[in-house]
């Protein structure tokens, strides 16, 4: 099993970030797209990268942190290779999404406090409405949407991914 490459900041000091900043002309008004690009390349927003971005854009670090924590899309702690999102919007909640969440968490040994497995393979999150209420309850694994989920079905999805990881 190969652990996903931990984004190493020291190995190439800020090279990727500098490239992203250049692409956006170091414009403070482009903060959100810059953070999106950073997240894409590091899979989360590491504090030292944000510090660097703040300094380069001449924006206070606390402001950058504020923006990074305001949008649910951004993560300030590293996420696993596979991100499993469970919808807990009103429709999904009513259609019993919580037992699904419990099942996934218990299969992976996760909890509300610990969202990511120690081997950095899985992160489990809840989101407020994915806009697919007709399919409730909904689970999104990486980019794939799975509707009308059941606790058993969700565990099966997870186990399939685990098997896939074990064989690579």
């Amino acid at each position: 099993m190969i652990a996903p490459a931990e984004p190493s900041v020291e190995a190439e000091p800020m090279l990727k970030v500098r490239e992203i900043l250049d692409r956006h002309d170091h414009r403070a008004s482009r903060l959100v797209p810059i953070l999106q690009a950073v997240q894409e390349s590091y899979r989360y927003l590491p504090a030292e990268v944000l510090t660097y971005v703040a300094q380069e854009l001449d924006v206070p670090a606390a402001r950058v942190f504020g923006v990074a924590t305001f949008y649910a899309h951004f993560a300030i702690v590293p996420k696993g290779k596979h991100v499993i999102r469970l919808c807990d919007g009103t429709a999904c909640h009513v259609k019993a999404s919580m037992p699904i969440l419990d099942a996934i968490r218990s299969r992976l040994g996760l909890s509300e406090q610990q969202a990511t497995t120690p081997d950095m393979l899985f992160t489990v999150e809840t989101v407020a409405c994915l806009g697919a209420c007709g399919l409730a309850p909904v689970v999104v694994v990486d980019e794939a949407v799975h509707g009308q989920m059941t606790p058993e079905g969700a565990v099966e999805l997870v186990e399939r991914l685990m098997a896939q990881e074990a064989s690579t």
């Binding site: 944000l50 206070p60 606390a62 504020g66």
Partner: peptide
Amino acid sequence: GAIDFAYRGHEAAVLPAF
């Protein structure tokens, strides 16, 4: 700008960076 708003909704707080 040593402190700013972070997070949102009922989690919102005034915090220093990170």
